[in-house]
Each structure stands twice: as structure tokens, then as C-alpha cells.
């Protein structure tokens, strides 16, 4: 899932203070699970803005709303008339949601209400860890299912650097050395010799380095187009 984290209220206040009608718009999928930007958090942020406005003597109408997802139009289309009543949308969806809504909302600004952190998992309640970098060319079969691109601070491809200290990364004793984990895991799997082979310089063009990416499934697009062209069945919709 996409993990987000809350922005400091001072930063949010700087964004919203000059608007009159603000909607804090939550997304109830990924960022709700990580307690950053679901409808519940949107409600809390709206309350914090109202309190701050009262303190600063500003009159701002602040409300909140939430939909299941911000990354597909079908989820927010039904509430767009309501959303367009405001002069600022503070989206607590991930950055995808902010971009996606910005392109569809018209002349109303959409500002980010949270920081989008990473793609991660939930090892225990309240803890989220980065596990994938979305590099576009997965090599997890070569590294025991542990990603050196997302989890090694230097994205090393051929084994640990000299900075591994008691299984931890030189960047911080709170960070596991990915290569330590990879080696231990592959020993257990009996596949350590896979690591003997040199991984050549990587083609990063499948990653962000190749420019913004797009996946287009032609067979799905063709199917959808065909469905749209079909005549209504006799008797109309039920």
C-alpha cells in the first residue's frame, strides 16, 4: 500500500489561511490504513484548521468528506458537485490523488494535506516500512524476496558495502542492512550461490529515470470500447 504521514499543522495552516471555503477531502484506502488521510483523519484536520482559524481571528468555512479512492474517477465523480462548492480542496489522499483530482476538478486548487512517504507494509500496528521502490524491473527472485533498491540505502546490487554494523545500516542503527537480510534469507533458502553472479549496471529507464511512466493495456481498452458501442439490450436497463 501507499503509506502517508501527516503534515505539521503549521504547514497546513500556511496553505489554507487565505481561503474562505476549504474542503478536507479524505481517501479511505491506503492512507486511511496508515492513519494519515482517511475520512477520520480528514475530520480531525478540518477541526484543527477551524481551531486555528478561531485563534487567528479568520473566518473560514472548513468541512470534510471522504471517498473510497482518489485514483479512479468513478469513486469521486458522485461527489464532485459538492467538492466544487469550495475554493480550496485540501486532499489527504496520496500524491496520486492530488494530481488526479487536480486534472479533473477545474479552476479549484487541490493542495496536499499529507506527505506521501513510500510503498510499504504494516509489520505491526502503527508501524509502516518501505519495501518496494516501484522501479519497474523486479529482481526479487534474485535476492530472496528482499529488495536492495528499496531497502539498501545505497541501492547496491552486488552485496553489502563495508558499512554493515551488527546487521544494521551505516545510515542508522534503526535501519536493517538489506544485504544482511538478503544473505541470511538466501542461506536459509539454500540459494546463496545466486548471489555469486555479478549483476551488471542496471537499466534505470524503467524507473523514474526514464521519465513519467504509463502502462497501457490495449486488450482492455479495446474491450471497453466494444462494450460502449454495443446497443442497449431489448427492454432497456433493469
Amino acid at each position: 500500500m501507499i503509506v502517508g504521514s501527516q503534515k505539521p499543522i503549521d504547514e497546513i495552516w500556511d496553505m489554507v489561511k487565505d481561503f474562505k471555503k476549504v474542503l478536507v477531502f479524505g481517501c479511505n484506502t491506503c492512507v486511511a490504513i496508515c492513519h494519515a488521510g482517511g475520512e477520520k483523519e480528514a475530520e480531525t484536520i478540518a477541526a484543527l484548521i477551524r481551531m486555528r482559524a478561531a485563534q487567528e481571528g479568520k473566518r473560514i468555512e472548513v468541512n470534510h468528506l471522504g471517498v473510497m479512492r482518489h485514483c479512479e474517477p468513478e469513486y469521486f465523480d458522485p461527489v464532485m458537485d459538492e467538492v466544487r462548492r469550495y475554493d480550496l480542496v485540501l486532499s489527504t489522499a496520496c500524491g496520486v490523488g492530488v494530481n488526479f483530482l487536480s486534472e479533473r476538478i477545474g479552476e479549484i486548487p487541490v493542495y496536499p494535506g499529507i506527505n506521501t512517504s513510500f510503498f510499504g507494509g504494516v509489520p505491526e500496528a502503527g508501524v509502516f516500512t518501505e519495501l518496494c521502490a516501484g522501479c519497474g524491473n523486479c529482481i526479487l527472485h534474485l535476492t530472496g524476496g528482499i529488495c536492495p533498491i528499496a531497502r539498501c540505502s545505497k541501492t547496491l546490487m552486488n552485496g553489502p558495502c563495508g558499512g554493515t554494523n551488527k546487521g544494521k545500516c551505516e545510515v542508522s542503527p534503526d535501519i536493517d542492512c538489506a544485504w544482511y537480510l538478503i544473505v541470511e534469507r538466501m542461506k536459509k533458502l539454500g540459494t546463496l550461490e545466486k548471489l555469486y553472479e555479478i549483476q551488471p549496471p542496471r537499466n534505470w529507464s524503467t524507473s523514474r529515470d526514464g521519465g513519467p511512466r504509463r502502462v497501457s493495456l490495449e486488450h482492455i481498452r479495446a474491450y471497453e470500447e466494444k462494450e460502449e458501442q454495443k446497443p442497449e439490450p431489448a427492454g432497456g436497463k433493469k
Binding site: 545505497k154 547496491l156 546490487m157 552486488n158 558495502c161 555479478i198 549483476q199 551488471p200 549496471p201 542496471r202
Partner: peptide, 12 residues
């Protein structure tokens, strides 16, 4: 940081 290539790859 860059780390486009790692040490092994740079040697190569």
C-alpha cells in the same frame, strides 16, 4: 545520492 552503479559494476 546517485548509486547509479555499485562498486562491482564500476570496477567492471
Amino acid at each position: 545520492n546517485v548509486y547509479d552503479v555499485d562498486t562491482c559494476q564500476l570496477v567492471g
